[in-house]
Nucleic acid binder design. Sequence first.
DNA 1: ACCCAGGCGCATG
DNA 2: CATGCGCATGGG
Length: 212
Amino acid sequence: MKLLKLYQQFLRHYGPQGWWPVSSRNKNGEAALFEICVGAILTQNAAWTNVEKALGSLRHKKLLSARAINQTKPLVLGQVIKSSGYWRQKTKKLKIFSAFLLKNYRGSLKKMFRRPLEELRGELLALWGIGPETADSMLLYAGQRPVFVIDAYTKRLCQKYGVCFKTYLDYQKFFERQLSKIQGRAKVKLFNEFHALIVRWGKNNSNVKSFK
DNA sequence: ACCCAGGCGCATG
DNA sequence: CATGCGCATGGG
């Protein structure tokens, strides 16, 4: 299983995916970064189309900021994000993440992403509602950090090639080691695009659904 | 009417 | 450590 080859094939076949999709004007501004983080939480085991509706509602109600979410009553927030599913849990997750951001970084994601990678990853994982995939999605797509995001599709892809590991970290190490030659911005770009392409691949292929 | 989607936390054994 | 279960909506 040569990952670099596979990446090039996917890229040729599907074209650039342009993740992470964001509605904010300034794609590097705080608003866009926050939208990515909110999206990372809302997309947990949910169809992205449903997440887009929730993000649209949040935007429409001017709730796409840590301060706004922090001040909004849970039941009101829950109504707004309802379409993304698990809304009671996700309301709590958004509030916990927003409170964390305000308390530790004055609500600034740019400030948050200045922290050393492993420490920040640990802080995010310590939050209720943020697991490895959500944390890594935030780090890669909002923070531009070189962490490979592993999801269900990635595991299905590995399974197709007879590659199987136990933990999330094991899968991640496999990808990061094999792609360790690439450096700097190019690595972030590749990790970004590759993960998006794997999801793109998984959406068509209804293959190997039996895998967990 | 089912099945699934860009997971996670928690309770068990 | 490792399985199993609840969480919830909308589209195929």
